[in-house]
Write a protein that binds this DNA or RNA. Structure first.
Lengths: 123, 123
DNA sequence: TAAAGTACGCACCTTTTGGTAACTATTAAA
DNA sequence: TTTAATAGTTACCAAAAGGTGCGTACTTTA
C-alpha cells in the first residue's frame, strides 16, 4: 500500500533536491563557495581569486547564492562602494561537502588527462 | 625566488584541474555517476533511473565520462544491442567524493526553498 | 587634470546546452 | 503483420550561459 512514497531524491526531476543539485552543479558556484570558505571577500577580491570569471558571472552567481541563503551580502553603503561577501551557516555546510570534490579534482586531473589522451589516440 | 610555483588549483583557469571541475560540475555527470555507483546499468536502465534525462544527453555525457576514464563501456556486440556501463576505479573514487554532495542536496533543499521564498518576498 | 578603483546594471552578441523527431538494424512478442 | 525493445546517430531548433563594452558616482592617487 505504501506505493506513492518515494524518498526525496536527486534522481527525481520534480523533487526540489534536483534544483539544489543544479544550483551546486555549476563551475562558478563551486569556485565562489570554495573561495569564500577560505575567508570573506569583496567583489574585487573574488574577481582576483577566481581566475577567468567575468564581473557579470560573478555578480549573477553571487545573487543566486544569496537568494538561496548560502552567501550573505553586506553593503557598507559607502561611496565608493564597499560590499562584503561571506558564507552563511548553510553555505558553510555546503562548502564542507565540496571539499572532497575540490580535492578530488586537484588530485586526479592528471589521470583524467591521461585517459583523454589515450581515448583520443585509439580508433 | 620561488615565485612561479603556484600549486595546481581549480582557481587557476589554465590548470586542467579546472577542466576536471567543469566535467564534474554538470547535473547529468553527477547523476550518472551516482546512479552507476549503486550498480552497473544499461542505457535503458539509466534512462529510467535518471528522471528527465534525454537519450541524447545520456549518450553524450556517458561518452565524455568514458573519454575521461570514469566510466567503462562494454558492448556485448549482440543484436539487439546490449551495452553495459559501470564505474572505473577512478569513477568510483569520484562517486565517493560526490556522496557528501548528494546527501547535502537531499538533506538541505528545504532550507534552500525557504531562503528563496523569503528572498523573493522581500523588497 | 586625468586616471584608476569600487560594485555594480544594462544591452548586445556569440557560444553552448539541450530538446524533439526521424532514422538505423534486428529480434521477439501480440 | 505490425509493434516494441535495444542503443544509438543525425539534423534542426529553442533556450540558456556567458563575454564585451559602456555608463554610474564618487574618492584617491599620480
Amino acid at each position: 500500500m505504501a506505493q506513492e512514497k518515494p524518498d526525496p531524491s536527486v534522481f527525481d526531476a520534480d523533487c526540489s533536491a534536483r534544483d539544489a543539485l543544479e544550483l551546486i552543479a555549476s563551475k562558478w558556484s563551486i569556485l565562489i563557495l570554495s573561495a569564500l570558505a577560505e575567508e570573506e571577500m569583496r567583489n574585487s577580491a573574488l574577481l582576483r581569486r577566481i581566475d577567468g570569471i567575468s564581473q557579470k558571472m560573478l555578480t549573477q552567481t553571487l545573487r543566486e547564492l544569496e537568494r538561496n541563503g548560502l552567501v550573505l551580502r553586506q553593503d557598507m553603503q559607502t561611496i565608493p562602494p564597499h560590499v562584503r561577501y561571506r558564507l552563511s551557516a548553510l553555505g558553510l555546510s555546503l562548502s564542507q561537502a565540496l571539499i572532497p570534490l575540490d580535492r578530488w579534482a586537484e588530485h586526479n586531473f592528471p589521470a583524467l588527462d591521461q585517459a583523454k589522451a589515450a581515448y583520443d589516440l585509439r580508433d
